[in-house]
Structures are given as structure tokens and as C-alpha cells.
Design a binder for these strands. Structure first.
Lengths: 242, 242
DNA sequence: TGGTATTTGTCCGTATGTATC
DNA sequence: GGATACATACGGACAAATACC
């Protein structure tokens, strides 16, 4: 991590903010001072700061300085705002995690599936259903659809571990962009069977469309979450001045 | 809109992608060609392209080009991924909209409220409850908490229209950053009373923390959405290389 | 009220590295 | 190897907002 200069600066500032070296609602040192500290150019520093702003850690105030708006006690428990696998998120939160594959098949996309997933009809795909456990609680059901021509040689063993790891390390495919849609849906029979929904009759649904470094969509995943454990973090800057 | 050079270029490219001048999975013209076309520097162009990538329109492929991954038919019906008011979103989707204020009071934040909203205890605040209609359907209940020392002189009439417009145009406060948390919660009595929930027993909840140009949080809003009309769009790039 | 220094915002030009074809 | 294309990094110039005297 952080082989690149602006990324090192970003990581360093981020850590210092989290450790409250730079506290909430205080200003960072001025650009000129930070440039001296990191011996870098203005652009490089500004890029690092822009990244901090994009994750909601700081906010630039023209003519004044850069203000810290990160609050320690509001730290996300289970954050999904990044492109991050279930395994990665579990590890980051140091929770015990397990994945159980409940369905594994190969099929050809028809018109109906194509409209739902965006994968062209006629494409050969893997269809996998997985239940995700954290601390022995069934929290998520994943429905994964992978293009067979890109994600070659998927097996049940791989699906039980981390498909992301397989894609990135074995196949050397780079996951670059994920588009995401969040909705709330009525719980299905499968949802009731696998998740302990208590008296909830809905689930939180995240639909993911994942693109590789060639710019083609090779995965569609629908993650159905137990509502009481679901939380999603977003962050936005206002740009328009209409 | 678009008084600034990189913003004009961004808007122009965005429009061309939406009009499919540059179609899905095609490459944009190379940086050098676009630089000539817009007579701008490399940095300026790259900044515009970076913005397009951040909204999921394009994806850069090192050594190859910039690939369009925007798909016309998947355009969001009711998108809330930006910092955007209900009124703005309604207009953008050209729907009839109405806001009904069902509660308006002034109070002082106590410990309980402070923990929930992040507003310091002891602060004077406006508390407003509003029901949002679109096409005559009650879709959202908003619980707004505004700091009285910053959002001065709020009235019921303003709340019925758009508080954002008032803040930005009348008070000249700039809304800069919004942090957002999405959860699913059991429906309350109020939810059942105001929204037509049918047999859903949950609502989608968006909690907003809004910061002004001074870097201080002046608004907390909890928006409780009817599940069948709720949709949220996100977008993420993978950065880490661990 | 006004002038000056500080700080961030925009924009440009150039050099070098790295991936693809 | 060579051409093309994107990525990183540096340095400088001017504008705009703010703070201070």
C-alpha cells in the first residue's frame, strides 16, 4: 500500500486525523507548510487533500484553510462505501467470518436474466448463492453472476473462500469500478429460510455491477442483507451552483 | 453552471456521453486530441475526466484510453446519490411534488438528542417534521434539526417550500459536505400514519449530516422512505492494492 | 476604510514513468 | 524497438477569499 507519493501523504494525513493529531474542526497546517513537511509539489499535496475530502475527513475553506470534519466516535462499524469484499470488511472489523455456498451452477443468460443483470443474453455464466456469516450470525445472502469467459475456472472451493482474491491474484483481472444500487425489498422464502429475520418482512438489497480493467461488466451481484445489521456509508460534496 | 473551465469540459463530455456521441464501451478521443479540441492544458482535461470517472461514466485504462461505461437505459429514476434537495430531485425527474409540514417547534438539544444528531447539547435548534409527496403519494417523512444560530429565522412558509433554497439564497450559507448513513428500521407509528406502507413493516432511513462552509455541522436530517419507492445510487473505485 | 500578507482555487507547461499495441 | 496513451510529479503564474493591521 502507498507506493505512490500522493498516496503516502494521503495515508499519513488520514492516520494523523484518526489519531486526532489534527482534531475535529481544527485546520490542517497550511499547504506551504505541508509541502515543506512532505517535500513535495503543491499539486501532489493538493491531490492527497482532495482524496481526504472525498471520504469526508476534511473540507477546504477558500482563503482560510483545510478543516477537519472527521469525528472519532462516529466511526463506521461495518462500512461498505468502498469496493471491498465481505472477507476484507470482516477482517478490517476483526470479526469471525464464514461463507457457505448453498448453490453453484452454470447457465446461459436468457432475456429475463439479461435485463436484470445487464449481462448480454446468450452469455455463459456461473450462478452462485452464498450465505455470509459474521460471529455465527447469518447476515447476508449473495446471488453472484459471473461471466464464464472472463472469470474462468471457478470452483466451489474458491467460492467458499474469496472470489475476489481469485479474480485478482490468480486470474490477474483488475476490479476497477463498481456501480451500486440500494433498495429495500420484501423478503423472499429464501431470505426467511437462511437469514434470521425475526419479525422483519424486508431485506436491504445491494445490487453491484462490477467492471474489469477492460471496461466490460463481468459480474452482477445481488446482496440481500438482514435489516438490523445493515448499514451503508456515503459521502457527497455539493458542486452545482445553479 | 460551469463557469470554470474544467467544469465546462466535464459538462460537455458528460452530455456527449449521455447523447451517445461517445457510446457504451467505446474509447474517448485520446487526451492529446481532447486537449486540442478544448484548447486546455493536460491537467485541466484530466481533472474533467477524473470527475466523469467519479460518477461512474468512464473508466481509465492505462495505456489504452478512457472507456465509456455509462449505459443509457440504466438511468436512475429517482437518484439521491448527490447532495440534492427533494425539490431539485423532483424537478429533475419532472414530477409533481408537494411538501406538508406536520410539525414545527423550537427546542434545546439535550444529551439524548445530541448523541443522535451530533449537535452539541445546549444548542438551540428548530425541529421540523415534513411529509414529502410525489405524484400525490406520500413517500418520505423528514425529521429536520437545524442549528438556530446558523439557520436563522426559519418559518413554516419556508419549510413548506425549500429550506435549501432559503439557506443558500437568503442566508448565503454554502452547503459543502454531506455525510450520509443508510439503514433499514422498523416502521414507527408515525411512519404507518403518514406513509402508505401497505404490508411493509420497515422503512429505509437516510441520516444526513450537513456541513457549511465554516466546517461546522448545522443540520441533521433523518429521511424515512417508503421502501417500494426507495432507491439509492452509489459508485466506487477500487484503490487499495494490498 | 483600505492595504498587505496568507491561504486556497484554477490553469498552464514540462519532464519522466509505465502500460498497451 | 518504437509509437501511442495514460499516470505521476514538479514548478510557476495569477485569481479569489480571508485575516489582520
Amino acid at each position: 500500500m502507498g507506493r505512490i507519493k500522493y498516496d503516502k501523504i494521503y495515508e499519513d494525513l488520514k492516520k494523523k486525523i484518526e489519531l486526532e493529531v489534527y482534531g475535529y474542526q481544527q485546520l490542517l497546517p497550511s499547504e506551504n507548510n505541508l509541502i515543506k513537511e512532505y517535500t513535495c509539489s503543491r499539486n501532489t499535496l493538493r491531490r492527497a487533500v482532495a482524496q481526504l475530502a472525498s471520504i469526508g475527513y476534511v473540507q477546504s475553506l477558500h482563503g482560510k484553510g483545510v478543516c477537519v470534519i472527521y469525528e472519532q466516535h462516529k466511526k463506521p462499524g461495518f462500512m461498505l462505501g468502498d469496493v471491498e469484499s465481505f472477507k476484507e470488511a470482516s477482517i478490517r472489523n476483526s470479526r469471525e467470518n464464514k461463507t457457505e455456498v448453498v448453490h453453484f451452477s452454470e447457465l446461459t443468460a436468457d432475456e429475463v436474466l439479461s435485463r436484470k443483470t445487464g449481462i448480454p443474453a446468450g452469455t455463459e455464466i456461473y450462478y452462485i448463492q452464498r450465505v455470509r456469516f459474521m460471529d455465527r450470525q447469518a447476515l447476508i445472502i449473495d446471488h453472484n453472476y459471473y461471466r464464464k469467459d472472463i472469470v474462468k475456472g471457478l470452483t466451489l472451493e474458491i467460492a467458499e473462500n474469496s472470489i475476489y482474491e481469485y479474480i485478482e491474484n490468480e486470474l490477474n483481472e483488475k476490479v476497477v469500478t463498481t456501480k451500486r444500487i440500494i433498495t429495500v425489498e420484501k423478503a423472499t422464502e429464501d431470505d426467511f429460510r437462511y437469514l434470521n429475520l425475526q419479525d422483519y418482512n424486508c431485506v436491504a438489497v445491494i445490487s453491484n455491477y462490477t467492471y474489469n480493467a477492460e471496461g466490460i461488466m463481468f459480474e452482477y451481484t445481488q446482496s440481500r442483507h438482514r435489516p438490523d445489521y445493515f448499514i451503508f456509508f456515503g459521502q457527497a460534496q455539493r458542486i452545482k451552483n445553479t
